[in-house]
Amino acid sequence: MTGAEFLELSVGAGFAMVFGAVLMAVVRLARGPSLPDRVVALDLMTVAIVAFCGLMAIAVRDTAFLDVALVLALVGFLATVALSRFAERARLRRERDEKGEEGEARD
Protein backbone atom coordinates (compact mmCIF):
# COMPACT_ATOMS: atom_id res chain seq x y z
CA MET A 1 0.00 0.00 0.00
CA THR A 2 1.43 3.34 -1.02
CA GLY A 3 1.23 6.53 0.97
CA ALA A 4 -1.33 8.02 -1.41
CA GLU A 5 -3.57 4.97 -1.11
CA PHE A 6 -3.32 5.05 2.67
CA LEU A 7 -4.17 8.75 2.72
CA GLU A 8 -7.19 8.15 0.48
CA LEU A 9 -8.36 5.31 2.72
CA SER A 10 -7.86 7.39 5.87
CA VAL A 11 -9.74 10.38 4.47
CA GLY A 12 -12.61 8.12 3.39
CA ALA A 13 -12.79 6.59 6.87
CA GLY A 14 -12.67 10.07 8.35
CA PHE A 15 -15.61 11.19 6.22
CA ALA A 16 -17.62 8.15 7.33
CA MET A 17 -16.90 8.84 11.01
CA VAL A 18 -17.76 12.54 10.71
CA PHE A 19 -21.00 11.63 8.93
CA GLY A 20 -21.83 9.20 11.75
CA ALA A 21 -21.12 11.88 14.37
CA VAL A 22 -23.42 14.35 12.61
CA LEU A 23 -26.20 11.75 12.43
CA MET A 24 -25.91 11.00 16.15
CA ALA A 25 -25.93 14.71 16.94
CA VAL A 26 -29.07 15.20 14.83
CA VAL A 27 -30.78 12.43 16.80
CA ARG A 28 -29.77 14.06 20.11
CA LEU A 29 -30.91 17.44 18.80
CA ALA A 30 -34.32 16.05 17.87
CA ARG A 31 -34.88 13.94 20.98
CA GLY A 32 -33.48 16.32 23.59
CA PRO A 33 -34.78 15.92 26.23
CA SER A 34 -33.50 19.20 27.68
CA LEU A 35 -32.15 22.45 26.28
CA PRO A 36 -28.56 21.75 27.45
CA ASP A 37 -28.65 18.44 25.55
CA ARG A 38 -29.66 20.30 22.41
CA VAL A 39 -26.93 22.93 22.89
CA VAL A 40 -24.28 20.21 23.21
CA ALA A 41 -25.68 18.49 20.09
CA LEU A 42 -25.40 21.72 18.11
CA ASP A 43 -21.86 22.21 19.35
CA LEU A 44 -20.98 18.65 18.32
CA MET A 45 -22.44 19.27 14.88
CA THR A 46 -20.30 22.39 14.52
CA VAL A 47 -17.16 20.51 15.49
CA ALA A 48 -18.01 17.69 13.10
CA ILE A 49 -18.57 20.11 10.22
CA VAL A 50 -15.22 21.77 11.00
CA ALA A 51 -13.63 18.31 10.82
CA PHE A 52 -15.44 17.74 7.50
CA CYS A 53 -13.92 20.96 6.14
CA GLY A 54 -10.47 19.82 7.24
CA LEU A 55 -10.92 16.45 5.57
CA MET A 56 -12.21 18.13 2.43
CA ALA A 57 -9.12 20.37 2.35
CA ILE A 58 -6.97 17.24 2.46
CA ALA A 59 -9.06 15.38 -0.12
CA VAL A 60 -9.06 18.13 -2.76
CA ARG A 61 -5.71 19.66 -1.74
CA ASP A 62 -7.18 23.16 -1.42
CA THR A 63 -6.51 25.31 1.64
CA ALA A 64 -9.63 27.44 1.14
CA PHE A 65 -11.59 24.87 3.15
CA LEU A 66 -9.34 25.57 6.14
CA ASP A 67 -10.41 29.22 6.10
CA VAL A 68 -14.04 28.10 6.09
CA ALA A 69 -13.31 25.72 8.98
CA LEU A 70 -11.69 28.49 11.02
CA VAL A 71 -14.60 30.89 10.52
CA LEU A 72 -17.14 28.16 11.26
CA ALA A 73 -15.31 27.22 14.47
CA LEU A 74 -15.39 30.83 15.68
CA VAL A 75 -19.05 31.29 14.82
CA GLY A 76 -19.91 27.94 16.41
CA PHE A 77 -18.14 28.91 19.62
CA LEU A 78 -20.01 32.20 19.81
CA ALA A 79 -23.32 30.48 19.13
CA THR A 80 -22.67 27.95 21.89
CA VAL A 81 -21.83 30.69 24.37
CA ALA A 82 -24.97 32.63 23.41
CA LEU A 83 -27.23 29.57 23.71
CA SER A 84 -25.68 28.64 27.05
CA ARG A 85 -26.28 32.14 28.35
CA PHE A 86 -29.87 31.99 27.15
CA ALA A 87 -30.38 28.63 28.89
CA GLU A 88 -28.92 29.97 32.14
CA ARG A 89 -31.17 33.03 32.07
CA ALA A 90 -34.21 30.85 31.40
CA ARG A 91 -33.27 28.60 34.34
CA LEU A 92 -32.82 31.56 36.69
CA ARG A 93 -36.14 33.07 35.56
CA ARG A 94 -37.90 29.74 36.13
CA GLU A 95 -36.39 29.41 39.62
CA ARG A 96 -37.39 32.98 40.47
CA ASP A 97 -40.97 32.33 39.30
CA GLU A 98 -41.15 29.15 41.38
CA LYS A 99 -39.99 30.99 44.49
CA GLY A 100 -42.55 33.72 43.85
CA GLU A 101 -45.37 31.17 43.62
CA GLU A 102 -44.26 29.48 46.86
CA GLY A 103 -44.16 32.83 48.64
CA GLU A 104 -47.71 33.64 47.50
CA ALA A 105 -48.99 30.22 48.59
CA ARG A 106 -47.67 30.76 52.13
CA ASP A 107 -49.47 34.11 52.56
Rank of each mutant, 00 (worst) to 15 (best):
G103A: 11
T63D: 11
A59N: 14
T46M: 01
V27K: 04
V27T: 03
V27I: 15
F15M: 15
E88A: 14
A90G: 06
L29Y: 10
S10W: 01
A48F: 10
C53K: 03
G100E: 13
G103V: 08
R38Y: 02
L7D: 11
G20K: 01
F15W: 13
M45P: 03
R89E: 12
A30Y: 10
F15R: 07
P33F: 00
T63N: 08
C53A: 13
A59M: 06
A48R: 09
V47D: 05
F86T: 11
A48N: 13
P36R: 12
A30P: 00
V11S: 01
A69I: 14
E95Y: 02
A25S: 14
L72I: 11
E104R: 10
V26C: 02
L78E: 03
A41N: 01
E88D: 11
F6A: 11
M56S: 04
R89I: 09
V27P: 01
L72Q: 11
V18C: 08
R61P: 00
R94H: 09
D97A: 12
L42G: 13
A69L: 12
G32M: 00
R94G: 01
R96V: 13
E95R: 07
A21P: 04
E8H: 12
F19Q: 02
G100S: 06
V47S: 08
L55I: 08
M17P: 02
L70K: 06
R28Y: 10
L55F: 12
L29Q: 09
D97G: 00
L83E: 14
E98M: 05
L23K: 08
V50A: 14
G76R: 07
M1C: 05
L66D: 04
V40A: 15
M1I: 07
D37A: 03
V47M: 12
F65V: 04
L70R: 03
M24H: 05
L7P: 01
A41H: 07
R94L: 07
V47G: 10
L66Q: 04
V40I: 15
V81T: 14
R28I: 09
R96A: 03
R38C: 03
A82T: 15
V26W: 01
A79C: 05
E101Y: 08
E101W: 13
R91Q: 02
L74S: 10
F77A: 07
F86V: 14
V26F: 09
M24P: 01
L35P: 02
A69E: 11
L66C: 08
A25I: 07
G54S: 14
L29S: 03
S84W: 14
V71D: 06
M45W: 02
D62R: 08
R106E: 09
A41S: 07
L72D: 04
V81Q: 10
A41R: 05
S34C: 01
D43E: 00
E88T: 10
T2N: 04
M56R: 15
A82E: 03
A90M: 10
A48M: 09
L55Y: 02
V68K: 02
S84Y: 10
F19M: 07
P36D: 06
R61G: 04
F65W: 15
A105Q: 13
L66H: 05
A90F: 05
V47T: 13
F15E: 09
A16R: 13
L74W: 05
V50D: 09
G103T: 13
R31Q: 01
G103K: 13
R106T: 10
E101R: 12
L70T: 14
L9F: 04
T63K: 05
L42C: 06
R91F: 11
K99V: 12
A30T: 08
A48P: 09
D37I: 06
